[in-house]
Amino acid sequence: MLLRVRDLEVEFNTSKGVATAVNGMDFDVNRGQALGILGESGSGKSVTARAIMGILDMPPAHIPRGQILLEGEDLLTITPKRHRQLVGSRVSMVFQDALTALNPVHPVGRQIGELYRVHRGYSRRDARAAAIKMMAKVQIPAAASRVNDYPHQFSGGMRQRIVIAMALALDPVLLIADEPTTALDVTVQAQILELLKEQQVERNMGLILITHDISVVKEVTDQVAVMYAGRVIEHGPTADVLARPGHPYSRGLAASIAGEELKGQKLPAIPGTPPDLLHLPQGCSFANRCSFATEKCLQEIPGLEQIDTARHSACFHTSEVMAHANA
Rank of each mutant, 00 (worst) to 15 (best):
M1K: 13
L3F: 10
R6W: 02
L8V: 09
F12V: 12
N13L: 14
N13G: 12
S15W: 14
G17R: 11
V22E: 04
N23K: 15
V29T: 08
R31Y: 10
Q33D: 10
Q33K: 11
A34K: 11
G36M: 04
L38V: 09
E40T: 06
S43Y: 04
V47M: 13
A49P: 06
P60L: 07
I63A: 07
I63L: 03
P64V: 11
L70K: 07
G72V: 13
G72L: 11
D74N: 15
L75N: 10
L76W: 09
I78F: 07
I78C: 09
P80L: 07
K81P: 00
R90I: 00
V91L: 04
S92R: 03
V94L: 01
V94C: 00
F95K: 01
Q96R: 05
L99V: 15
N103Y: 06
N103A: 10
V105F: 12
P107C: 08
G109S: 12
R110W: 13
I112R: 00
Y116R: 08
H119F: 13
R120Y: 12
G121N: 01
Y122I: 06
Y122G: 01
A131R: 03
A131C: 09
I132L: 02
I132V: 15
I132F: 01
M135Q: 05
K137I: 07
Q139Y: 04
A144D: 15
S145N: 15
P151Y: 02
P151K: 05
F154E: 15
R159M: 14
I162V: 15
I164P: 02
M166P: 05
A167V: 06
A167D: 02
L168W: 05
V173T: 15
L174Y: 10
L174K: 00
L175M: 08
I176Q: 01
A177H: 00
T181Q: 08
A183T: 04
L184S: 12
Q189C: 11
L193V: 04
E194Q: 14
E194T: 15
L195Q: 06
L196P: 00
Q199N: 08
Q200E: 08
Q200L: 07
Q200F: 07
N204E: 12
M205S: 00
G206D: 03
I210T: 02
I214L: 12
V217Y: 01
V220W: 07
V220Q: 05
D222F: 11
D222M: 10
D222C: 10
Q223F: 13
V224S: 00
A225N: 06
Y228G: 00
V232N: 01
E234R: 07
H235I: 14
T238L: 06
T238H: 02
D240Q: 15
A243F: 10
P245S: 13
P248W: 00
S250E: 04
A254S: 14
A255G: 09
A255N: 13
E261W: 14
G264P: 10
Q265Y: 13
I270E: 03
T273M: 11
P274N: 03
P275K: 08
D276M: 02
L280N: 08
P281V: 09
Q282C: 10
Q282H: 10
Q282Y: 03
C284D: 04
S285F: 13
F286T: 00
A287K: 02
N288P: 14
R289V: 08
F292W: 09
F292E: 04
F292V: 03
A293T: 09
E295G: 14
L298I: 10
L298D: 08
Q299M: 11
E300I: 14
P302E: 10
P302S: 12
L304N: 11
R311L: 07
H312N: 10
